[in-house]
Design a binder for these strands. Structure first.
Length: 496
RNA sequence: GCCCGCAUCGUCUAGCGGUCAGGACACCACCCUUUCAAGGUGGUAACCGGGGUUCGACUCCCCGUGCGGGUACCA
């Protein structure tokens, strides 16, 4: 065990595996959002094949904590292929990887900070803080804590504690500037005077994000922090913490946000946002990964189809984009189609299983073959092959379409014997029959071919749109196909 | 209010002082075609505005504008 809390305490971080160590540290409050996934994906890829990708659960907000969401997150990440080298379930040298199980470490860090004067206890009530902010805002000042409790004497602190007043620990922002070279945005400089004295330990005994992630990133030997730009303004606080604790900060890469079509931060208002929903809509993890990777990254070449291992091979901080990206579902759809067509029929069949419950495995593969070229999402399939699993009985009007009833019946009667034969012969012979019915009408031949074929299609599937007819007959079997054609013929004859 | 970030076709992006500003999605047309797709060919479409710097700016600097983020005992 290296760096584990029981064994090592706060100052050991060396000797951990991996040339680079990056982490994804979600807060388990709901479902895994595609914006977060993009961040996780970048971290995973930027860890490179030689590095380590670590999953850490940031469950320090007990109000919003949702226990189910931890397994939800893990399931989603696994589905996407973003497997973690260290973290919950797999363990690792820095275990535990769940922050609520690491409380003594944060307490120790907080005590150390208070002891050196880098942080101080604060007993201000929420009401007082709110009034303070309202007043500051009213007079056009930045809203910051007024350090009311900074200079409390030891006796005054003890008096507050004796009175049972809730206590937090605040970081004392030192004067000066904080700057760092952001791996995405370049040189960043903030005036510390603009920063609030951030609460580090909450009155419920849990650390805030700020303390917990600095302590954990250090202890876990994180080399590069990849997070969304919304964290940019709090980076100076983190830098101050690293300095006060005598630790070397990691590199920071602030990645731009993922926006909805209206350029607002992507949310449920824009439709789906959870990975699970995309899965249910029939998106392949390969496509989602490929699509998300290009929201803020590009290889600099004209290649655009990448799998996860290629992305991990190719991604670099230098090529990360600094402007926000709009989530364009049409492009996702396109890429999903590309990935569907890249699958083998057997592989596609396996993916289809969850969309076609009750369909036997033997039937899945022919279905996969017939839909592969024509779908962009897996959830289109049930509709496309509905004809094979439910009875059809179109009436005469629907059957004949633009054709005369007698004509349609005549054509159909000649088709019936064809489906009893070899399916491979079906289309050539069908074309010959079509030719007999289009002689002498070269001008309208195209339209007539269309009409004639349509009669067969409707008879067989009762759908205007279906897979190719030979595939349809193949899936139906010649018995069922023949029955449907004969039934259709009866309808036409009765209707005429 | 205060602080900060960002800015190339509708969208994702290439570009890193001199390009006919390239590719992809979407869209349109045509071809292929039994429907729908897939595929092929072609087309429409962009450097937010104003100042500088420079022989020369999409590229560098400043201002404005727009969009976004932060401003919690949430992350």
């Amino acid at each position: 065990m290296i760096g584990g809390p029981e064994v090592a305490g706060l100052d050991v971080a060396a000797g951990l595996p991996g040339t680079r160590r990056l982490r994804f540290a979600p807060s388990p409050t709901g479902q895994l959002h595609v914006g977060n996934v993009r961040t996780a994906l970048f971290s995973y890829c930027l860890a490179t094949p030689e590095g380590r990708f670590i999953l850490r659960i940031e469950d320090t907000d007990r109000e919003r904590y949702n226990p189910e969401s931890v397994s939800e997150y893990m399931e989603a990440l696994t589905w996407l292929g973003l497997t973690w080298d260290e973290g919950p379930e797999v363990g690792g040298p820095c275990a535990p990887y769940v922050e609520s199980e690491r409380l003594p470490l944060y307490r120790e860090a907080a005590n150390r900070l208070v002891a050196t004067g880098a942080a101080y206890p604060c007993f201000c009530t929420r009401d007082r803080l709110e009034e303070l902010r309202a007043a500051q805002r009213a007079s056009g000042l930045p809203t910051r804590y007024d350090r009311h409790c900074l200079h409390l004497t030891k006796a005054e602190r003890e008096a507050q504690r004796a009175a049972g007043r809730p206590e937090v620990v605040r970081l004392r922002m030192p004067p000066g500037e904080s700057s760092w070279n952001d791996l995405v945005l370049g040189l960043q400089t903030f005036d510390n005077a603009e920063m609030d004295d951030q609460v580090l330990m909450k009155s419920d005994g849990y650390p805030t994000y700020h303390l917990a992630h600095v302590v954990d990133d250090h202890l876990m030997g994180i080399t590069h922090v990849v997070r969304a730009v919304e964290w940019l303004p709090s980076t100076p606080k983190h830098l101050v913490l690293y300095d006060a604790l005598g630790w070397r900060p990691p590199g920071f890469a602030h990645v731009p946000l993922v926006l909805g079509p209206d350029r607002q931060k992507l949310s449920k208002r824009h439709g789906a946002e959870a990975v699970r929903e995309y899965r249910q809509m029939g998106y392949l993890p390969e496509a989602l990964v490929n699509f998300l990777a290009f929201l803020g990254w590009s290889p600099g070449t004209e290649e655009e189809v990448f799998d996860l291992s290629e992305l991990r091979q190719r991604m670099s901080f230098e090529r990360l984009q600094s402007s926000p990206a709009v989530f364009d579902q049409q492009r996702l759809d396109y890429l999903n189609g590309v990935w569907i067509r890249r699958l083998s029929a057997a592989a596609l069949a396996a993916r289809l299983a969850e969309f076609l419950p009750g369909v036997s495995p033997e039937q899945l593969e022919p279905i996969a073959r017939m839909v592969q070229e024509r779908i962009r999402r897996l959830d289109e399939v049930p509709q496309l092959v509905r004809f094979a699993f439910s009875d059809t009985d179109p009436d005469a009007d629907r059957l004949r379409g633009q054709l005369g009833t007698a004509e349609a019946a005549d054509f159909l009667s000649g088709v019936i014997p064809l489906v009893a034969g070899d399916v491979a012969e079906l289309m050539p012979t069908l074309r010959l029959r079509v030719a007999e019915f289009t002689n002498g009408q070269p001008e309208s031949a195209r339209a007539r071919v269309r009409q004639l074929m349509r009669v067969v299609r409707i008879a067989l599937t009762d759908q205007e749109v279906s897979p190719p007819l030979d595939a349809v007959v193949d899936l139906l079997g010649s018995d069922r196909a023949g029955k449907r054609l004969r039934r259709a013929l009866e309808r036409l004859q009765a209707g005429g």
